[in-house]
Structures are given as structure tokens and as C-alpha cells.
Nucleic acid binder design. Structure first.
Lengths: 239, 239
DNA sequence: CATGGCCCCGCTATTTTGGGGGAGTAAGAA
DNA sequence: TTCTTACTCCCCCAAAATAGCGGGGCCATG
């Protein structure tokens, strides 16, 4: 299995390389290694922020951004709802906008075949790792069967490297809440009123209020909703 | 590489097996294959629901549930904030509750060493795949170096199989929020009052209320805090 | 051309939350 | 020891959110 060897070498080189260009370099090497047309890593923030590297042409990337294809692209929309790698054939290309997008993509050198691995992190963070190629269904099927496992693994390792290079996207660690405060925040996050939460915790509503207020101050929150939002997105509570 | 061969065989058997016991069977086979003390798959639902299979003793599992250790367990809390597999040594065990939990866990046969792979799906779904063992740091280091890749891959494949067997946990296609609803939820999550949000969006407070209510109904939320919590943990908004 | 989604606005009444005080115990750290 | 931190309980009152009713217009899909 020289293949696996080689792939690992590429990612190890990546580990010791200094800058962001090395991500681009690595993805190009990986593309050559798999002998496919394109390999793309695409980070999507829910607020529309994007970051990516890959082997699509600059023209296509720019077109994608300016035309705001992110909101149309069935690959993004579809894989956002999926756990597992999705073959492009299994996505919904029926809408008019989707088909226009598809035409445009193929015209710009994107393959007719594709597999996209969705990768998720804390706080709704989301990235895609895509391999795309121009070939027949049968050839593609064979390729996927052979490489699916490696692609999943590489997707996650590549994401890991990408995060190393862009630590700004890493979540920071935070002051913890007391157990009672966690209880309070958790139950509030589940939609219960103060009275219900106090009942559930077998304490007076006034006591509960003290917890909420102290949690609020620890979290620097302006109100209960804010406090719950911060506790959630900082991973201090699990709902 | 007979190892890889064998591992794949186990998961392929799993693919053709009919019931839920086969998950349990597979995880036991995988444990024997890796020659570790424990292997655990642990699903944590957004509403606190849990499901799991693994090789921990029944007593420990029951204790974990009855004592609500989910809210204390540094493995859960820690890996919830991480993208990548975490070695238990790198978690925060400093709090008293954590240490009490750790003592109790080890007393019930959980290993002193562990590696946990966080797995995420759409809508805030979250699962853990953990390997745990009783051994020295050096031995553990070596084991991880050798098997890390395989473990990540297996974690995701196991999760995939688990979802096949329990389609009830498959995400239902949830109605996305409208742009205005997203705006409203986002600003509310940032701690602003309704009046402030209405001001910021340049609409009347009453109109804003309509958005909040429709978002609440789409999300099946009981109040604003609940709605914001769901929107956050389902990845519909980012703060 | 109807249906349903999204966008915008008004009113009143009730319930819930927030902000300001106060006090006492028990456990752990300095 | 003293000091902090977590946990528990109580008051009052103003501000904010919720719940119910109503109205209209725009645009895309079917």
C-alpha cells in the first residue's frame, strides 16, 4: 500500500510547514496523488464567512463568491443536512437555480462527479472536503469504493491542519459555571420558566434568581437569553 | 496489514447484520481486536437523551445515568468543545466534581487512559466514540500513535452504522429560518432586548415579535430563550 | 389565480424577568 | 484564622416579554 504511505507523507509535510500556502500545496499534491480533477477544502461560517483552498480555477472561485452561489449550491445545502459523505448524484438538483448552478460549474471545469465530506466542529462550525472528477458513473463508483475511507480520514486530518494554521477559528477556553448555575442554565435553555426551573431544582425562585444573576455576571451576559446563548456556544452546557 | 483487513471485516459484518445487538457485538469484537479494556459509543441528544453501547460494566453505565454524570464528565464537556479526538490527559480534571467522577470511574473499571473522538451531525447532534485502557503513559502513547487514524475512521463508520440501525435518530429536515428570523434570533442571542433589536432592524417592535413567534413555532420552542438555544445548537445562527 | 411564505404594522392584558436591597450556612483556600 | 465561593432564603417594584386579537402588501410555486 504505497498509496497510504504517500498520503501520510503529504500530511506530515503539512505538519512541519509554516504558512498557509502549504495547505494549498498539500491539496494539490493530494489531488495528484488521487489522480482526480479537483480537491477542495471549503470552510463555511453560518454568517456567510467563507474560507477555502483547492484546485478549482480562480475564475470559478471568484464567480462562486460574487454570485453568492453558497446559498444555491446543492452540495453545501445538501451536505449541511447530512452526517456522512455524500455523492453528488444523491443530492437534489431539481430546482431551477440548482441546475443553472450545475451548468455553470461544469462549464468552469468542475467535474460531473463528486463526493463531499461534511465536517463539523463546536458552535455550528462547518467545513466541506470535496473531491470532484470528470468521468463515467462506473469509473466513479469504482474510485469511491476504493478511496472512500482514505478520503474521510484525509478530510478530517486536513481540517485539523487547517485549524492549526488559522487559530483564530479555534474556540477559546472559559471560566466554568458552578454546578447549580449549570443546572439553571441548562433548564432555562430547555425552555422552562424561572418558576418551573426552581420547582425542578427544588429551590425557591429567589435562590434560582441568584444563580441566574451570578451566571450572567460570570458570562458577561446582558440578560438570561444572552447568558444561555453564551453558555451554549462556549460549550459550558450541553443541551 | 492484517489488522486493517480484520477491522474492515468487522464493520462489514455489521453492515449485513439485522438488529441492535450487532452494534454491541461489533464493539466487543473491535475491543478485542484493538486489545484494549473498553470501547464505547455514546450518543448525546440535544434534549439530554442518551444512547450508547460499549463494554463498560452495566453497573457503571447505570451509575453514570442515575448520577447524571453526563453533566460532570470532563470527557463529554471537554470533547464537546473540540474538533478533534482528545486524549483524556489533555482534559481539565481540576474541579472537585471532575476528580470525584474520575475516582468513581476508575473504581468501576474505566481505564486511566482514554481517547475520545467527537462526532457531529446536522442540527447539533453529537456522539462520542471512546477507547479506554489501563496502562502507562508510554504504552498509551505508542498505542495512540499506531491506531489513531484507524480509530477516527472507525468512529465515523460506527456512527454511520448506528444511525442505520436507529433511523429515529436521523435528523428530520427542519424548516430553515427566514433571513429576518435569523436576524432576530442572532441579535436576541447577543443579549439585546426586543426594543433594541427592533431598533437595530429598523422595524417596529411588534413586527419583530411576529418574527420571534414564527421562529419559536418553527423551532418548537417554548419561549425566546429556548428558541435561541435551539437555533444555536442546531447551527441556524452563530454568535 | 390561489396558496403559502415572507415582510410590515396596530391594540390590550397578563405573566415573567430584572434590579435593588437584605441574611445565614458550609466548605475550602490562603 | 480569615476570606472567598457556593448555596439557600426573603422583600418590593419597575421593566420587559408573552399571549391574544386584528390589519395589509409582495412574490414565487404550483
Amino acid at each position: 500500500m504505497g498509496m497510504t504511505q504517500r498520503r501520510e507523507t503529504i500530511l506530515e509535510e503539512l505538519g512541519s510547514a509554516p504558512g498557509l500556502e502549504s495547505l494549498q500545496g498539500a491539496i494539490e499534491k493530494l489531488r495528484d496523488h488521487f489522480r482526480v480533477d479537483h480537491l477542495v477544502y471549503h470552510w463555511v461560517n453560518t454568517d456567510g464567512d467563507q474560507y477555502g483552498c483547492g484546485t478549482y480555477s480562480d475564475i470559478w472561485v471568484e464567480r462562486y463568491l460574487t454570485k453568492d452561489y453558497l446559498r444555491v449550491d446543492p452540495v453545501v445545502i445538501g451536505s449541511y443536512q447530512k452526517f456522512h459523505p455524500v455523492d453528488w448524484k444523491r443530492l437534489d438538483w431539481s430546482s431551477k437555480a440548482s441546475r443553472a448552478f450545475q451548468m455553470d460549474a461544469i462549464a468552469h471545469g468542475v467535474g460531473n462527479q463528486g463526493l463531499t465530506v461534511p465536517i463539523r466542529g463546536p458552535n455550528g462550525q462547518f467545513a466541506l472536503f470535496t473531491v470532484s472528477h470528470q468521468c463515467s458513473d462506473a469509473e466513479w463508483e469504482q474510485f469511491i469504493q476504493r478511496n472512500r475511507r482514505d478520503l474521510i480520514l484525509i478530510a478530517h486530518e486536513f481540517n485539523e491542519k487547517a485549524l492549526e494554521f488559522e487559530p483564530s477559528r479555534q474556540p477559546e477556553q472559559l471560566r466554568a459555571l458552578s454546578p447549580r448555575e449549570v443546572d439553571a442554565m441548562t433548564l432555562l435553555a430547555s425552555g422552562q420558566s424561572r418558576a418551573q426551573v426552581a420547582e425542578a431544582l427544588s429551590i425557591s425562585e429567589h435562590t434560582l434568581r441568584v444563580y441566574i444573576e451570578s451566571a450572567r455576571s460570570k458570562l458577561g451576559a446582558l440578560n438570561t437569553t444572552h447568558a444561555v446563548a453564551r453558555a451554549l456556544s462556549w460549550g459550558l452546557i450541553v443541551v
